[in-house]
């Protein structure tokens, strides 16, 4: 729960004592608001069975795309089927080598679930295999330039402690 919500919750608790109902007041408009008494926490369970090799690749320090063995189209994020020629025959292809940073930003105002991080740079790199990869950029923000040479690097994201990939200037 955010600090913002925590404060509202305290105000609602106080209101229940004084007014009998969890009514809080918006300070700008002095409108009465019912503070929801039912909390919903959501965590999704997302199917990755058919692209599990991608996660095996991260364990070996590799970032994999898929390639259709029939028509050669490369997919990143990895796709378990070819929507171009309708084939299910896919092979794994490592996104190795030097790419180019085609654009980037720095996220200053963060989503609630990323609020524990300092400002982070996100970029899109064009890889030599013909696909783009979006990821955080592991570099001093001030040194970034559109067109700079980059590669992909796999390491653990902290503090969550799971493997993911970064764009890293060469």
């Amino acid at each position: 729960m955010s600090d913002e919500t925590e404060k509202l919750k305290e105000a609602a608790e106080e209101a229940k004592k004084n007014l009998g109902s969890p009514l809080i007041t918006d300070q700008k408009t002095s409108s009465s608001l019912w503070f929801d008494q039912r909390e919903l926490n959501v965590r999704y369970m997302i199917s990755v069975e058919r692209i599990k090799k991608f996660y095996d690749g991260l364990l070996e320090g590799k970032v994999f795309a898929t390639r259709c063995t029939k028509c050669g189209v490369v997919y990143f994020p990895p796709q378990s089927y070819c929507s171009s020629c309708r084939s299910d025959s896919m092979e794994w292809l490592e996104l190795a080598g030097t790419g180019e940073l085609i654009t980037y930003t720095v996220i200053n105002v963060k989503p609630q679930s990323f609020s524990h991080y300092p400002d982070y740079a996100v970029g899109i790199a064009k890889m030599p295999q013909g696909v783009n990869v979006l990821a955080w950029i592991d570099s001093d923000i001030k040194s970034l330039k559109v067109g700079m040479k980059v590669k992909l690097e796999v390491k653990k994201r902290e503090p969550e402690n799971y493997l993911t990939y970064w764009i890293k200037p060469e």
Binding site: P77, T103, Y104, T105, V109, V122, I124, L134, V146
Partner: peptide, 24 residues
Amino acid sequence: MWEFENFGLTFPGYYALYATAYMS
């Protein structure tokens, strides 16, 4: 899964990717 979950993009962030490329 591939742009939010791991990389915390925001709506201004998505358009900022366009702004950077356009300005450049």
